[in-house]
Design a protein around this nucleic acid. Structure first.
Length: 573
RNA sequence: GCCCCCAUAGCGCAGCGGAUAGCGCGUCUGACUUCGGAUCAGAAGGUCGCAGGUUCGAAUCCUGCUGGGGGUACCA
């Protein structure tokens, strides 16, 4: 990453200045390189001179000048500029920027990739919604965040595994199974009213009808408990199949669907972990329950691991599941994607990790805020149990996968997201995804047109990128050179939205290039105005070839960025 | 009560302790005989919730306050 190069150049400059006596001796702090907002200030800036004023006991401006006089040369950089109150500004050289065209071509579609992960494994666990109903819009944000984060981690050198944790244990599935049985009876014409706690949604009615069609009335002729047990399996499997379809529609692929219930099988992971914790004296008995001694790990309280009823406590699954992830499966790192209503649970996870003898740093929780749905200005409250649900499928039917994915990535994780289901409003926002895709389609169109006019890739592939010196060309190249920094930011902050905003910026710069720089030779030049500020109307064959290479390179960067977002990069629209 | 998050242009939102705080929508004015007008250019629009503090420098960090959202069980 060029920014790291610059930091090193500055560090060497300081050291050299110290050696020559221009700067006094002091320990050189980490050199931070920033990005000036004003292009007049160059591409990168070091503010180190201001920070050194105190240790060096010199005026910042004098320090900056001393450093600058001793900077080693770097092929990507022009001459550094010192500006008050003490900034050292760097500008990327035009030649280096033009050289990025070849870099992009040579990257094999991986331009911007970095190596933070260094091949280590990282599991991203996301969605993990209860399999007691279709995926609704509340899970959509989770789905898109987790998947895009997975893409970004892979681009950052991590070996990524995507996992869906199927919550098929506990009271929710029991309630669900009871609901299935009641609806099943109703489907067979019996009077079987639902209680308040049961799932009121119509999807269970359909489910029950399916079961009647497949299995007939056999569940009426067995003890109720037995029927519930069987219907639980059948119902969960059917719901899960539907969830898998929705997930596929969102273009998400899970490497593993992990069953919570499997933790509790006899001799399973839960027993294993519980025994382990007992052996290391991390549990104690109190008030008839068995507690995990997280207070000894710095928590303000212990957590129940086995309730006085003998049932596993709330955190039992988390304990066994994360033990499985880190110890048994050996992931170097795990990221759980959770909605903000799990914040308390998230805060307790580090203590669970410590109790398990694991480094809490290996676990990150990506907490994101809720999606609030509106229709005609009124908030629509979602609740699976009340049956008031807006499914992902419904919304995808209306606005499409690309718009849904893109839109959900245009907010920072902590921001509450208002999603208006009114089609007119949705289309306005949907436009943001189209805007970026349009840029890609336009590039594809230019390349097609070039071939149609007898200028196929074979004829421009040898074009000379050094001819790219127009400000619009260089600005576009500058932005593309930023990609690795954007990926780094997104990965370090677990914040994929950075990439969505980057995509829009890049699209804007491409459109500006398109406006200012003619790529293909005009059909004919009938002597248009020679206003220097006006867009070019004529272009030489050599320049055209260079620009076609730039367009093709830009197109591949767009495809990369859209791919990381999980959005299609269309050849035409 | 205690804890977490949020507050930036009319609306929706970006903004990594740096230089003149940005983007989209909306509003107003412009741009198609030539590569896709689903586009582009320009204009108007701001006490960055309030008050202190730290710093050479604060929308950004700290404290307090106001307003909004969420969390605080042997439940999931």
């Amino acid at each position: 990453m060029i920014r790291n190069d610059i930091a090193e150049v500055v560090r060497q400059g300081i050291a050299a200045a110290q050696e020559s006596g221009s700067l006094p001796a002091f320990e050189i702090p980490t050199v931070e390189i920033g990005r000036p907002k004003d292009p007049k200030h160059g591409d990168y800036a070091a503010s180190i001179a201001m920070q050194l004023a105190k240790p060096a006991r010199m005026a910042p401006l004098a320090i900056a000048q001393a450093i600058t006089a001793h900077l080693p040369a770097h092929p990507a950089l022009g001459e550094a500029q010192v500006l008050p109150p003490g900034f050292i500004n760097f500008r990327l050289s035009d030649a280096w920027l033009a050289g990025q065209v070849a870099e992009i071509e040579a990257s094999g579609g991986q331009y911007g990739d970095i190596d933070l992960g260094r091949g280590r494994t990282c599991q991203v666990e996301f969605i993990s919604a209860n399999p007691t109903g279709q995926l609704h819009m509340g899970s959509a944000r989770n789905a898109v965040l987790g998947d895009s984060l997975g893409n970004l981690l892979a681009a950052a050198g991590w070996q990524v595994q995507r996992e869906y944790y199927v919550n098929d244990a506990g009271t929710q599935t029991r309630t669900f199974a009871e609901t299935v049985l009641l609806r099943y009876k109703q489907a067979l014409g019996l009077d079987a009213p639902l209680d308040k706690q049961h799932y009121q949604g119509a999807d269970v009615i359909d489910l029950a009808r399916e079961i009647v069609a497949e299995y007939g009335d056999r569940f009426l002729h067995m003890p109720e408990e037995e029927a519930i047990t069987e219907l639980r399996e059948i119902g969960l499997a059917k719901v899960l199949a539907g969830i898998r379809q929705t997930v596929e529609r969102l273009r998400i692929h899970f490497d593993c669907w992990y069953s919570e219930a499997s933790l509790y099988e006899p001799g399973g992971r839960f027993e294993h972990v519980l025994n382990h914790l007992r052996n290391i004296n991390m549990t104690t008995h109190r008030d008839g329950a068995e507690w995990l001694l997280t207070s000894e790990m710095g928590s303000d309280r212990d957590e129940v691991i086995v309730r006085s009823t003998g049932q596993p406590g709330y955190y039992a699954s988390d304990i066994a599941y994360h033990y499985d992830k880190f110890v048994l499966r050996g992931f170097d790192r795990v990221i759980d994607v959770w909605a903000v209503d799990h914040q308390n649970q998230a805060r307790r996870m580090p203590y669970l990790m410590k109790a398990l003898g694991l480094d809490p740093q290996r676990l990150d929780i990506l907490l994101y805020d809720i999606v609030r749905l509106y229709r005609d200005g009124q908030e629509v409250k979602l609740s699976k149990r009340s049956g008031n649900v807006i499914t992902i499928d419904e919304v995808v039917d209306e606005v499409g996968v690309d718009a849904v994915r893109f839109l959900l990535l245009t907010r920072s994780n902590q921001a509450v997201m208002d999603f208006d289901l009114n089609l007119a409003v949705a289309q306005k926002d949907e436009n943001r995804a189209f805007y970026v895709q349009y840029a890609h389609a336009r590039m594809a169109s230019i390349l097609r047109k070039a071939a149609e006019r007898g200028f196929p890739a074979a004829r421009w592939a040898g074009g000379n990128p050094d001819l790219l010196r127009h400000p619009a060309e260089l600005t576009l190249l500058r932005k593309m050179a930023d990609l690795s920094e954007v990926i780094e930011r997104a990965v370090l902050d677990l914040a994929p939205h950075n990439l969505a905003f980057y995509a829009q910026d890049l699209a804007k710069l491409f459109h500006a290039f398109y406006r200012d720089c003619r790529v293909l030779p005009g059909r004919e030049d009938d002597g248009a105005a020679e206003d220097a500020a006006a867009p070019e109307t004529e272009v030489t064959a050599e320049l055209s070839a260079a620009r076609l290479r730039l367009v093709a390179a830009t197109k591949s960067v767009f495809a990369r960025v859209l791919g990381l977002l999980g959005v299609n990069a269309p050849e035409s629209m």
